[in-house]
Design a protein around this nucleic acid. Structure first.
Lengths: 332, 332
DNA sequence: CGTTGACATGCAACCGGTTGCAGGCTTTAG
DNA sequence: CTAAAGCCTGCAACCGGTTGCATGTCAACG
């Protein structure tokens, strides 16, 4: 039914073919209940036969509804994000929305630029782990519906993954195993998640009477973790909780370099569960909920678009400890 | 300069403010060389002061140029793709293009649907590891400029990662280490890359006098690799080359379950190098070039958009073996 | 039987830019 | 000094839909 010609089929040709006015063709697609069933059928048949498909751009121009949303993340290649992106994407798809993807490269300027580029073509945006200032976020939110992920700005709808709950479980788990002195290997200072995790370690260690030291890895990466091992060992701690799994993997490598057995001589806990059980020994870590976060953010956004309501929404997802083999030796 | 109002600033207000016709405002932005420098300045100043930003949708409607491209992948969460997506995204950004991301979920129907949704809003598309039939791909290519990644359809511009070269090196490497009998753990039957890798293993093993068996994992995943271990061991081989790194990691886990030492008693080679050295023991694998592929595909597409030329382009990236610790014990 | 109202459809303006063409003014050549 | 050639700028049509309003038709109602 569709042929290879690269013609421009418009509502006009369909109108002619069906013997009605252009407006009726339009309505046959957007408000069929306004027309007689007979007319709708005639128009649809004609459209089908010609292979007509409505021009999304023209429609967007006159209605203001584009059917697009944008999702901006700091780094697509960071394994935390792909599942989130995927979930958001699939959720958008269910409502026939298209999603623009932006990579801010951890740079607020770049993020700002992307928002600007997208704004004109979307009905709403999602910023995941935004690096923008609260002020810029508010400014953008005033222009377009905006949902945040892992960023807590009052008045802006947001989806937060509370890694605090999982981290508290991790500390309790280590205490139970007899550790008395642990280290938190910190991530980026600007990260909301890092702040939250550090606080959770501090508080619950205090409650349980454990000694805590903080070692900075700053960049969350394998190499940073590996290099942090020297500092970790000088503290005299017997276990470490890392900002994320990448860092944790680096720590494991650094320990292996020094022939320190895990979990026998030293315990390691990651965060975000990005690798699953796919490494050996498999990493004890905190679950991430990134799939739910992506899905929730998208549906929240779509909801906002519908209702136009501006309630202050704060959706929190809790996390849990996933015990694998870097804190305790499991028997299969 | 920009304020919080949610007004609709159009070319008209700017024209009024600058005391010129609407067309002059338009030209001040799109073809400044047609206007006197003085007028351009006046218009730009006025626009700046008001905070005017051209409406991309309206522009697209009249010019047909949207400044968007679409990228469709089978699975965003498969670690092979994020670096590719990221590279494409950044390359697009350099030319002020926005990118739509689609996840086909390994399903041709879904992929077709996405292409349809995007077509009206983009100037060109990139299909990575497309699951569509050659026929559908050709049909879509007739509508819009289209570039393929890891899919070899004659007449359609394509970027191919030739894992054959790396796989041949892997086989030679294993032969050199004394292995006489190896296994190829296969991936999806519809995958172009899988076909290519299997063939490369077969051919070069034959040339070197090695015995080869094929074991099917079908789905490329950690679990599939782990389950394939039983079949691998019954062949009597002493080393395995896996379709990808995820499968290889699963194999390592399965071997560990059976207390088989790697690389001492059994050698393992992955493909795609998605985990880097970030696991322990670190995986010997074949490099992937996915970053170059993403970047190349995008710039190829942009080039096509400019030149309108329809040459048959076939851009091939070769790969190499990356030797780490699952085939041979390294000393640091 | 005339009026009212519901329903179906067409007309034309509009969304916000772009662009071919024409007209006015200035410059250059004859 | 006049005509040809540029250079700027404005007018108005157009991109392809959507939508408020007017019109026409027909059934139901008083």
């Amino acid at each position: 039914m569709v042929s290879g010609q690269k013609q421009k089929l418009t509502i006009k040709q369909v109108a002619q073919a069906a013997g009605v006015a252009r407006s009726s063709v339009s309505r046959a697609f957007t408000r069929p209940e306004m027309l007689s069933p007979e007319t709708v059928r005639r128009v649809r048949d004609a459209a089908e036969k010609l292979g007509y498909v409505p021009n999304q751009t023209a429609r967007a121009l006159s209605t203001g509804r584009h059917g697009n949303v944008a999702l901006i993340v700091p780094d697509i290649a960071n394994p935390f994000f792909p599942p989130l992106i995927r979930a958001a994407q699939m959720e958008a798809d269910r409502s026939d929305f298209c999603v623009f993807l932006g990579n801010s490269d951890e740079d607020p300027k770049q993020e700002d630029k992307l928002v600007g580029r997208f704004t004109g073509q979307v009905e709403g945006l999602i910023l995941a782990s935004s690096r923008l200032s609260d002020e810029r976020i508010r400014a953008h939110a005033a222009q377009r519906p905006l949902v945040l992920i892992n960023r807590d700005v009052e008045g802006i709808p947001r989806v937060l993954i509370d890694s605090g709950s999982g981290v508290r479980e991790a500390v309790a788990h280590l205490a139970e195993l007899g550790h008395q002195h642990i280290v938190y290997v910190a991530g980026p200072v600007t990260s909301w998640s890092n702040k939250q995790r550090r606080l959770a370690v501090r508080k619950s260690a205090e409650r349980l009477g454990l000694k805590v030291d903080i070692v900075a890895a700053i960049v969350p990466s394998y190499d940073a973790g590996r290099e942090a091992v020297a500092a970790i060992l000088t503290t005299g701690a017997t276990a470490a909780i890392a900002f994320d799994d990448l860092t944790a993997q680096g720590i494991l490598a650094g320990l292996a370099d020094r022939k320190i057995r895990v979990p026998g001589q030293f315990g390691v806990v990651g965060c975000d569960d990005v690798l699953g059980a796919a490494t050996y020994p498999s990493l004890t870590t905190v679950s991430n909920r990134s799939v739910e976060a992506g899905k929730a953010a998208l549906s929240l956004l779509l909801e906002l678009l519908q209702s136009q309501s501006l309630r202050d929404i704060r959706y929190v997802l809790d996390t849990h400890l996933v015990v694998r083999n870097t804190t305790i030796d499991h028997k299969e």
